[in-house]
Amino acid sequence: MTGDDAHWAFGTSFVDPLAGVDTTLPDGVDGGELAAYCLMLGDDALVASHRLAEWCSNAPDLEEDVALANIALDLLGQARLLLARAAAADPGAVPPLPAGSPVPGEDALAFFRDADDYRCVRLVEPENGDFGETVARLLCFATWRLALLARLVDSRDPVLAAIAAKGVKEVAYHRDHAARWVVTLARGTAESRRRVRAGLRAVWPHRAELARTHPVEARLARAGVAVDPADVVAEVDGVLAQVLRAADLDDLGPCAAGPVLDGPGGRDGRHTPDLAALLAEMQVVARAHPAGRW
């Protein structure tokens, strides 16, 4: 890891995100599978971060501009580490670039993969909507991610374990931030209550996908490397129910079972159209200069 608590984003010299970290694969773990798993968690963080960063200069007040940017920076840091771990675990997962291209593996993964190759859940993809919808989505996402990372600190892959340990502290704050806003808006004015309720309703259908287990997650969970999302369903539902109670929005219900998502989802590369649009924008400069140095 980068050593101390200092935010790596503030450095200006190029630093290999995994410099000094032993990236040897744990016994019996397939590099391709580990890379696939890192892409799932990394893509979740990258896309969620990108959306939150869109709030920059658009937030309800300057203080919130700063707060949302902090959250986006935390998630971007996690994404960078996870994509670097994926590239190290399976160099074959990295999209091919022109010979001599200086683009590092994590950037090749972020900027030269098409939507079909992204592995994020659909929850993080849609356009932001209003502030009510954004905090509803963040509540859902951070609650789920915190439950996953809290278990991932015991991963047999020391790199994943270290990334999770750093992430737990960050995401606990994200969850708290979102929960406070949901409660504040729900108990603020009639208008804010209407809006946050609409936001929660817009986000809710995506929760079913968070409870599903992809075969890669199942196999790596058995190997002690990954977390099976099925194992965190009860915890996530419990936390969300608690927030909804505080918000006096019990009627939305935790909907533990949720609407079943049929067929393949984001983890299989089947995404909402919003992701393709997001990536078209995010990747435009990098792809125009495949041999570029940044």
């Binding site: 608590d5 200092a6 935010h7 503030f10 203080e63 700063v66 707060a67 902090n70 931030h177 406070r180």
Partner: peptide, 16 residues
């Protein structure tokens, strides 16, 4: 008050 502490954390301690 609560929001003030949180905003202070984000605004005035983001470089540790």
């Amino acid at each position: 008050d609560t929001m003030a502490v949180r905003n202070a954390r984000d605004v005035y301690t983001r470089r540790n």
